[in-house]
Design a protein around this nucleic acid. Structure first.
Ligand code: FES
Ligand code: FES
Lengths: 143, 143
DNA sequence: ATATAAAAGGATATTTTTGTCTTTTATTAT
DNA sequence: ATAATAAAAGACAAAAATATCCTTTTATAT
């Protein structure tokens, strides 16, 4: 469904969104530990999120990453889009070059309903929603 | 969503399901042409489908592949399962080792609805359904 | 100023997925 | 029997995704 890179991105963003006001900044190592991801690879992904302004990064001692104002309001859809593009939201399930009503694949009608369901959910689910579940201990970032 | 191998598998199965009674057998080359897939790679996938009895293969002159009795009745779910396994139907969206109610990821509840929607659709959609659309010219195997 | 800390950037490595090529085996037709 | 055809099997290759390592840049604290 989503690439590993994308899962690491989502989990990182959720984790950063759980951090309390005033203690929002945290280092790469702690992020990677919190979400159980490979550190250096996670760094690359965080860089991409910084480039897209979902995160801010600060170098040097006491540096680290923190969620940006933009990032705080963002949906899962946006995070996926930044890392995986939106092929999962618009691409053909059976591999046709484009998914259109004009020239649909065999599964188009049935599949479109699911894709739209997914897209709708992702566009209406915010990091805050996800972070709340983690904070309240009803959901988890790692096993 | 699905691997390329899986898409080739589905499209191959659909194509074979469109062939009329008595002219069911067809060679690899024609299959690869019909679905616009790389021939040798497609061969590997068809072999897997033969091993799982969704297809039958006949060597030698006038040989080729044809859909089996089992294959005729099979759903999309089964084809995906044979090639990609069922991680797409049961795996955690955010990469947790297992998807359970006991220890759900942040997206579990919302994601489970979509996954169940997908699974339901795939378990109730048969190759015959897909093949009918192709036969009637309302859907297509390639661009 | 200097040493230290931490992210950025870039090169490299590994693994997985996708794809090709060659040889072998089975079947058919002559 | 022999030649031709087509899939099976296995080795190999290329591309993409994942992951690591090393150097550079920027900021902080002493
Ligand atoms: S054309 Fe295949 S999903 Fe729309
Ligand atoms: S635990 Fe992540 S989807 Fe169920």
């Amino acid at each position: 469904m989503f690439s590993k890179a994308c899962k690491y991105a989502i989990n990182s963003m959720i984790f950063l969104a759980t951090l309390p006001e005033g203690e929002e900044r945290i280092g790469l190592k702690d992020i990677a530990t919190a979400i159980n991801s490979p550190e250096a690879f996670t760094a690359k992904i965080l860089q991409a999120l910084v480039r897209e302004n979902l995160l801010e990064s600060i170098k040097g001692p006491n540096g680290g990453f923190q969620i940006s104002e933009v990032g705080k309001k963002v949906t899962l859809h946006r995070v996926v889009q930044v890392i995986d593009g939106d092929s999962v939201f618009t691409g053909c399930a059976l591999g046709l070059q484009e998914c259109t009503e004009k020239r649909p694949c065999a599964a188009h009608h049935k599949f479109k309903a699911i894709r739209d369901h997914l897209t709708g959910m992702m566009m209406t689910t915010t990091l805050e929603d996800m972070a709340n579940g983690i904070r309240q201990g009803v959901s988890y970032l790692k096993y």
